[in-house]
C-alpha cells in the first residue's frame, strides 16, 4: 500500500510536469515531425521511387515517429531530473522514504507517457497518408514503449552526469540526433553500399526504427526477433544501471 502510494505520487508528479508545459513538451515535437513529412515526404518524396512497396512519404512515417519518441523520452527524464538537481528539489526526494527503483520507475514512466503521446499524435496525423490500419498495433506499442524506456534511462544517466544544460543539449545534438538519422529513418539500410550497411547494424537505434516500421507497415530490414531482443535487452540493461546509480547516490549523495 505504502509503496503503491509513493510510486503513484512520483508518477503523478512526472505527468503533472509535462502536462503543465504542454506547449513546450508536446506541440513542438509533433509540429516538427509534421514539417519533416511535408518537406521530405511531399516535396522531395515525389522524386523517390517506392521503398519496400511503399511510397516514400509513407515509408518515413514510422521512422519519424520513432525519432520523435526517442527525443522526447530522453528530454522528459533528463529535463525533469536536471531541473530537480538545479532547484535542489532532488534533495527533498532523496531525503524521503523512496526506493531507488521507485524513483527510476516514476521518471521512466513519465518518459513512456510522453513518448506514447508523441507516437499517438504523430500516427494520428499521418494516418490519412498511410491509407491502411497499423500492421500490428501491439508490436508498434511494444517498440514505442521499449524505445521510451531505453531513452528515458539514457536521459536519467545524462542528467546525473550533466553539470549544465549545455551538457544535455550536447548529448541530444551530437549523439542522439545523428544516430537517429543514420538508423534508417529516411531510407532502408538494404540500399546502402558496403561497408555502410554493415556499420548501420552496429547502431542500436536502427533496430528501434526497424521494429517500429515493422509494427506500422509490416516491412523490416533486420529479423524481427533481433530487433525486439536488442531493444528489450538494452532497455533492461539501462534501467538496471539507473537503479544502481540511484542506489549508490551517484552525483547525488555527497
Amino acid at each position: 500500500m505504502g509503496s503503491t502510494t509513493r510510486l503513484a505520487a512520483l508518477v503523478q508528479m512526472e505527468f503533472f510536469r509535462f502536462w503543465r508545459l504542454l506547449r513546450q513538451t508536446i506541440v513542438p515535437p509533433v509540429l516538427n515531425t509534421l514539417l519533416f513529412i511535408l518537406i521530405f515526404g511531399f516535396s522531395l518524396g515525389s522524386r523517390i521511387k517506392e521503398i519496400h512497396g511503399f511510397p516514400f512519404i509513407v515509408y518515413i512515417i514510422p521512422g519519424l515517429t520513432a525519432m520523435g519518441v526517442m527525443n522526447n523520452a530522453f528530454s522528459n527524464t533528463s529535463t525533469s531530473l536536471h531541473m530537480a538537481k538545479f532547484d535542489r528539489s532532488l534533495d527533498n526526494l532523496l531525503a524521503a522514504p523512496l526506493k531507488p527503483f521507485e524513483m527510476v520507475l516514476a521518471l521512466v514512466t513519465g518518459g513512456i507517457a510522453r513518448g506514447l503521446l508523441i507516437a499517438i499524435l504523430t500516427l494520428a496525423v499521418a494516418l490519412p497518408l498511410l491509407k491502411q490500419p497499423l500492421f500490428s498495433f501491439w508490436l508498434t506499442l511494444y517498440f514505442v514503449v521499449m524505445q521510451s524506456v531505453f531513452f528515458g534511462c539514457w536521459g536519467i544517466i545524462g542528467a546525473l552526469r550533466a553539470k549544465t544544460w549545455d551538457n544535455l543539449a550536447t548529448t541530444q545534438t551530437f549523439v542522439i540526433t545523428p544516430l537517429a538519422y543514420l538508423a534508417g529513418v529516411f531510407y532502408s539500410v538494404t540500399i546502402l553500399p558496403p561497408p555502410w550497411r554493415e556499420i548501420s547494424l552496429f547502431n542500436p537505434l536502427f533496430y528501434m526504427v526497424d521494429g517500429t516500421r515493422y509494427g506500422v507497415l509490416g516491412v523490416h530490414d533486420a529479423p524481427l526477433w533481433i530487433s525486439a531482443g536488442m531493444i528489450t535487452g538494452l532497455a533492461i540493461l539501462l534501467f538496471a544501471v539507473c537503479v544502481w546509480l540511484f542506489q549508490i547516490g551517484y552525483k547525488m549523495v555527497r
Binding site: 509503496s3 502510494t5 503513484a8 522514504p97
Partner: peptide, 14 residues
C-alpha cells in the same frame, strides 16, 4: 501540489 505529492512520498493517501 508540492504539499500533496510530499504526503504521497511518505505513503499518505491522496
Amino acid at each position: 501540489k508540492i504539499m500533496e505529492f510530499q504526503g504521497g512520498f511518505y505513503g499518505v493517501s491522496v
